[in-house]
Design a protein around this nucleic acid. Structure first.
Lengths: 343, 343
DNA sequence: AAACTTTCCGAAACCGCTTTCGGTCAGAGT
DNA sequence: ACTCTGACCGAAAGCGGTTTCGGAAAGTTT
């Protein structure tokens, strides 16, 4: 029988090669390399040396097959931009790091068919768990409960309350924004939001209004809803300031909007933060740190979200009773020049 | 022997379950599901039906083990931002899509140790190939030639010429920028670059200067080198315009810089594009489309890069002779409002 | 010195699948 | 009626590991 040439068949070393070289049996070699106790120190050394000499790389496929776990979790995202999924990936890798688990990232690009396909690919590869990341905080369809592995939804919660979802606490974020502006001595506060159809937009507004109410203040003007863009931030700010020149603080639904608002303020020769303070949402570094002045904003702690998701997956794998429902994770105020005067 | 409870051991269906249910042997079931010809149509139908009934999901681990290929490639990146790696991932997935290959993404975060670790993880999982993505176009250390799988370097080329690297043609990009400004009727062109220590910065400048030379023009002022930031773009533009008020076109080393430059032009009440045209580099959508006016820029065709990388991996897997060296991939001019007057 | 432990090792089963290869059996050829 | 083909199917041998379990050798007790 002719060996098919073509594929660069540089045969990789196998455990029996190691065993043979060390003069022990397959079983002993395995035990030696896995740190099992039933093997004499001298033997173990011999095996390890042999393995190194032929640069043996254990075949995880074989191992996974028998152990019935792959030490791999799937990260199924539809966030093509990557601004949410990458921090989450990093957080998850950190949390898994200790357990030598790796993360398999699939990008469904917001396409249900592709998502189905990738889900299937993950299941066929027998991942131990799946983290689903959406690109907005609106509820998304559940993957269902027939899955043989634990699933955690991050950022976009599942629409099925018996799934476990982790999502940033937008309401708290909105509240935090307003409280910060008040702490900055402002009382004539306006709000430029994004697309009203987003839960995130509404939740943030709700939190903000709550905080204003608690402080006995009223919003200046109406909440301005439109789209999540710098363009809208500019236009909305212009409209607001024309109608309500007394405004001394603007809460924005996103960093993009905030940048637009700051742009307009600059055009209008209103100093930030002296005359008007501005706060954004997301802490999208590239936007927040490059604006003039740098943008105070709310960080949704994506990395932490990823870490927590990983832990929940772990717990579920280990058979602990799985939690359910939407868990709102704390957000964090990041103070920069747009609210606090730089010295 | 007590079955270990704990892990949600919902036993997943196996091929023998299918075989049994369909009343055929394991071998026949396998053949039926894989579309092999040595099985009668009726039998095949029976097997397929059985598989569906118990929602059989083939175990790729087992399959990979025997086929000696995983239909998985690793994407090893150090681009935490994700602005390069995600388009590349998408391109690669597209190219592989047909062959039902999936991509395993690992983020080394620019850390050599982590990179080593992930590389090992990929090899243990027996990926069929590896795509290495850097976050800048400077050469990076090769992973070496001892690897049992094909490797393609993307964006950041390998420092070993016998590796295959795909990187955008920054020189052509620089040239394209200048040619476009000239086509816009400009002749007093300045250049704001980024960090001089980056090959990308120097290559782009080189291309630009070449194009100027070909047109019989001279650069206005010196090439300004500093950092890749909006801040620098603002400052550099201010300096340039003070010293050389005649400038009617600015080539920028990145979109960030270009945004800064546009900002300054706005402050100075110089109209873009009427008085001065500006061109960036990268086509980083979030920056380019939100500036006032939107930014004309050079797109490095990352997605195409990913697709090509995937194809090269395929070829190498199939045993075709592998190419070597650094291949400079074409870039593309994206025209927006900062160079062409909007109607 | 006999009996009993303990320590260390290896044969073999198994994980879930693919593939080879020999066997059955129906229909075709003569 | 009898061989000869094919077409179809299944037993069994792996793929590269882990793990069980029995046994040999060495050390401990009496």
């Amino acid at each position: 029988m002719v060996q098919r040439e073509g594929r660069a068949e540089r045969r990789v070393a196998t455990l029996s090669d190691v065993a043979q070289r060390a003069g022990v049996s397959l079983a002993t070699a395995s035990k030696a390399l896995n740190g099992r106790s039933e093997v004499a120190p001298a033997t173990r050394q011999r095996v390890i040396a042999a393995a190194e000499e032929i640069s043996f790389t254990p075949n995880q496929l074989a191992r996974s097959l028998v152990e019935n776990r792959t030490r791999t979790v799937g990260l199924l995202t539809s966030d093509l931009e990557g601004r949410f999924v990458l921090p989450i990936l990093i957080g998850a890798e950190d949390a898994f790091g200790a357990g030598r688990v790796d993360v398999f990232l699939c990008d469904a690009r917001g396409d249900a068919v592709r998502e189905r396909h990738h889900l299937n690919a993950l299941l066929e590869r027998r991942v131990d768990g799946i983290i689903v990341v959406g690109r907005q905080t609106d509820p998304r369809p559940s993957l269902g409960h027939e899955l043989p592995v634990p699933v955690v939804y991050v950022y976009a919660p599942s629409d099925d309350p018996s799934d476990l979802s982790l999502t940033p606490d937008n309401r708290a974020g909105g509240r935090l924004s307003v409280e910060h502006l008040i702490a900055c001595g402002r009382s004539r506060i306006a709000y430029i939001s994004g697309d009203r159809s987003y839960v995130a937009a509404r939740d943030r507004v709700e939190g903000a209004l709550g905080a204003l109410d608690d402080a006995g203040l009223e919003l200046v003007g109406e909440v301005m809803y439109s789209e999540w863009s710098e363009h809208w931030g500019r236009d909305a700010a212009a409209m607001l300031l024309t109608k309500h020149p007394e405004i001394d603080g603007i809460v924005c639904g996103s960093d993009q909007i905030a940048r637009g608002a700051i742009d307009t303020l600059r055009d209008l020769r209103r100093a930030v933060p002296d005359d008007v303070v501005v706060i954004g949402f997301d802490n999208w570094e590239i936007l927040a740190t490059n604006s003039r002045p740098a943008l105070t904003t709310i960080d949704a702690n994506m990395q932490e979200l990823g870490r927590t998701a990983a832990q929940r997956i772990f717990e579920a794998i280990d058979g602990e009773v799985t939690e359910q429902g939407i868990h709102y994770q704390p957000v964090r105020l990041v103070i920069r020049g747009s609210t606090i005067e730089r010295r």
